[in-house]
């Protein structure tokens, strides 16, 4: 089956569209010595520090085939990676930017995570980067869980020296100027309403783009881990103007804990007229629907 990843091509377009000045500011990142186990290889990466801008520090995990690690919401098992970056006497906890996850189903129990190579970003705020020399010393300690048939907690300590960048234009400080961040997903507004033991999530078709193709599958990855039953099926209903997904609540929620917002990633599969399937991701910010009575 051929799957085209819409996001990847979108990113390419963004990179090309950047002003030349910003592209020049993108320097090859510096990579730390690796921490290697039988299951994974981990390094820390950072690009040149840009004065006045936040700096992404990346924990890069390269997992052996069969192994996976977890998303910010790990789903029904596992645990997200944890990173502490130390720069100029500041301590920053991360990661704060995660790539889109996969749904990992093991005999009916669903977790959210990644196979292969994954970059987990911790952003060092500009304010934490006062320095006297032209080299920034970065240290990080990290823990991450890898699972295949068994689960193994792993950890590492990393050190990096990053040269300060030369003067850069205003565009250089922007997130898009560094390839270390995961692709910025388009944001789609959505609504949710109570439905039985859960919610129906409605997303206007207009905010999903590509109206010439039919949405054949959709899955919502919520950022919060206590909202939905991750292992339950999410029934998809496609109509002219919107798609709707039925979500099962994790457990009967007392009214006081009813969410006033649901954030997460929506994975959509579309079938084009040519029969080719496309996988796209959007970031969803859903608010309660106003009930009409």
């Amino acid at each position: 089956m051929t799957i085209r990843r819409g996001v990847a091509s979108g990113v390419l377009a963004t990179m090309i569209a950047l002003p030349l000045q910003a592209q020049q500011a993108v320097q090859a990142p510096v990579e730390s010595a690796p921490v290697i186990t039988d299951r994974s290889r981990a390094t820390l990466l950072a690009a040149a520090a840009i004065p006045g801008a936040g700096m992404p520090v990346v924990l890069r995990l390269q997992l052996r085939p069969g192994w996976h690690t977890y998303w910010r919401n790990p789903g029904d098992s596992g645990e997200p990676a944890s990173v502490t970056v130390r720069v100029s006497g500041h301590e920053i906890s991360g990661p704060d930017a995660w790539p889109v996850p996969e749904r990992i189903d093991i005999a009916g129990i669903v977790s959210y995570g990644f196979h292969g190579e994954v970059d987990l970003v911790t952003t060092v705020p500009a304010a934490a980067m006062q320095r006297s020399s032209d080299v920034l010393q970065i240290e990080a300690s990290a823990t991450w869980l890898v699972c295949d048939k068994v689960c193994v907690p792993e950890k590492g300590h990393f050190a990096l020296n990053v040269p300060a960048a030369g003067p850069a234009g205003s565009a250089a400080g922007k997130r898009d100027a560094t390839p270390l961040y995961p692709p910025v997903l388009p944001v789609a507004p959505a609504m949710f309403s109570k439905m039985g033991q859960g919610w129906t999530l409605r997303v206007p078709a207009a905010s999903l783009g590509a109206r010439d193709t039919k949405v054949t599958q959709a899955y919502f990855f919520p950022e919060r881990g206590d909202l939905i039953d991750h292992s339950a099926a999410q029934a998809l209903h496609v109509s002219e103007g919107e798609i709707a997904l039925d979500l099962t609540a994790a457990a009967p929620l007392p009214a006081a804990r009813a969410p006033d917002e649901m954030r997460g990633v929506l994975a959509i599969t579309r079938q084009g007229a040519d029969g080719v399937r496309h996988l796209d991701h959007v970031r969803l910010v859903a608010r309660p629907a106003i009930e009409s009575r």
Binding site: M1, I3, E102, G108
Partner: peptide, 19 residues
């Protein structure tokens, strides 16, 4: 990253399994 497990047959297998 490999293709999303959304495309695997597991989802359908699972429903059968539940039954």
């Amino acid at each position: 990253m490999s293709s999303s497990p959304i495309f695997t047959r597991r989802g359908t297998l699972l429903m059968g399994a539940g039954a």
